[in-house]
Design a binder for these strands. Structure first.
Lengths: 340, 340
DNA sequence: TTGTAAGCGTTATCAT
DNA sequence: ATGATAACGCTTACAA
């Protein structure tokens, strides 16, 4: 593998000049530039990661992370991955600042961003509120040379390196496919949603509905909103399955799964209602072991934690952008046997 | 993060001495050794990966890969991952030699190993034949300072760094769970196996049987062996479902899936027989789109390709051993909606 | 037993 | 516009 030193020797110039050409910094004579580029191409020069990483340490990058979901067990898993990734980055002299804000509240997030910028971060990782003010702020950072990676949820129309997270639409489609299989082509589904205001939730339902035309025996009987509250979920689920005894499947598109399951058990219907949920949290695993939940669809919280930091680091050090605008995590189907 | 240089200054010695202590090379005065270790502990010293990698490049490591499965599409996916990983390692001045041998034939494998050793490899990645001679050879390499990582299948009783691959038993259990769900607790299963001689295949069946006691409605009606041959599979599957019209589910534990599916279609039973298979190959995807295969269980070929090389590299450079003896790939459930 | 110095490939600063 | 040089953290051959 060719090195800058070799290229310099072949071109009869110093490594400094090669560096200037290859990394487009400073002015170089057009002719020598052409010569250097040609040699680099001929030798298929690719920068050495170890060398870059070593040199980059002098810069001591600082990253900021903003996530909501205090008390949300899913985000605890993401957070664990952030910690892990932070440890790895510390070997490259990088540091990470985390801010966990409340789930709703655009002001909170804007403040957190300002705070982190003031602390001198070189890159931002954020699960953004779906709000124009946030998008504007991210654009502002971009112009100021601070790249952002969104994760878990995205916000449209902002300049960011990429989004890392679930393909909610595909998850919804997958849920529909599972329902159809579990009910042998005759699924009369009750939907338990979190909130119509939250894009992720509605996308999961849109994806589900997308597949209705594919499966004629799959239909939606009724749907409720629990605002991710287990007790509200309990009451409303109970009401729904009482009102519609024909329901033989429940699709939990968001939180409040535990409450909903409890309602199904209380109604004595846990043997004849198939349940599909999202994410792997302790209560969901419990319900799975009891045979109440048939399957849960996971979205790789560990990747959502690790990858954004890695992407920022690679961008800042080697200038490498992610291949795609959307880096989707896997749509993982878990049943009792492969839950851990 | 503390560096060896800092430790050396604090201890009032040279970095050479610190290196000798921290990496246990050469003799050091017991007292200075103690002092250095103490400082290292106090500062939570952890070696800098970039520095190590950079210094390691002078060694220009050479790795050997031995895999069977010529013409096996699953191994083509693994192979693509090897190529990808090879490209990444080339940035660290490492090179990789690949040998693909026939699926059966211990001699072939032994010869391939000898050939690679002669070429001067520093580490070996192999999907080993389940044979004592192979185990002995791997032990020999270990004693000679050449570490091995097994992948895809393992061989008992040999000194290797670790095994990277599927947990076949868990895969079998997962298949049982799926069958039970798809047949609503009343599954009368026909098993289509590859060969009783191949450990992976029998383990997948053992795992399946493991869950029979959990699901009283799940039973095995009959089982056949197709030696991974699609045409044999076609004939035998046809025979089996003709003979046992009560069969409402087929479990393909190995290859020959396409032939088996064709038999089911030919018998006009593709609507009332649920099929679970392994791996994602082109023909399986086709059958899934047709609704013939309900689910297929995958084993991360991309991880099986990438991880073994990375493990060898990390071991040789930073001396880091994998955390566990068995690095299992995920047991991934794929249905039509999340197959790609 | 310990120290010195060069080298891995890149980046950055200073001088010319 | 270009070159020289030091620095990043670690390894290693050689000298003392």
């Amino acid at each position: 593998m060719a090195t800058m030193k070799e290229i310099a020797e072949l071109a009869g110039v110093s490594r400094g000049t090669v560096d200037r050409v290859l990394n487009k910094r400073g002015a170089v004579n057009a002719k020598t530039e052409e010569k250097i580029l040609e040699i680099a191409r001929a030798l298929d020069y690719r920068p050495n990661k170890a060398g870059i990483a070593l040199a980059a340490q002098k810069r001591k990058y600082k990253f900021g992370i903003i996530m909501f979901g205090i008390g949300n067990p899913f985000f605890d898993d993401v957070c664990a991955a952030f910690t892990e990734a932070t440890n790895e980055l510390s070997e490259y002299n990088c540091s990470v600042l985390v801010r966990r804000t409340s789930a709703f509240g655009v002001e909170d997030q804007l403040d957190a961003i300002d705070d982190l910028v003031e602390k001198g971060i070189n890159g931002l990782v954020i699960a953004p509120q779906n709000n124009q003010a946030i998008a504007d702020k991210i654009n502002e950072l971009w112009e100021a040379g601070i790249p952002t990676v969104t994760f878990n949820t995205d916000v449209p129309g902002c300049k960011r390196l990429c989004y890392v997270g679930s393909n909610y639409h595909k998850c919804g489609q997958t849920a529909a496919g599972l329902m159809n299989l579990f009910c042998n082509g005759d699924a009369r589904v009750g939907i338990v949603n979190g909130s119509k205001q939250i894009l992720c939730h509605t996308e999961r339902i849109a994806g589900f509905c997308d597949r209705l035309k594919e499966y004629p025996g799959l239909s939606i009987v009724d749907s409720i909103e629990n605002n991710d509250d287990d007790f509200k979920s309990y009451d409303l689920t109970k009401e729904m399955i009482d009102k519609h005894p024909e329901i033989n499947a429940l699709y939990f598109a968001a939180g409040g799964t535990y409450g909903g399951c409890k309602a199904v058990i209380a109604a004595g219907r846990d043997k004849d209602i198939k349940i599909v949920t999202f994410d792997k949290i302790a209560t969901t695993v419990e319900m799975m072991r009891l045979g109440v939940i048939s399957a849960t669809i996971c979205q790789q919280p560990e990747v959502q934690g690790a990858l954004p930091l890695k992407i920022l680091f690679d961008y800042l050090t080697i200038g490498e952008k992610p291949a795609t605008d959307h880096v989707y995590t896997q749509t993982e189907i878990r049943i009792c046997e492969n839950i851990d």
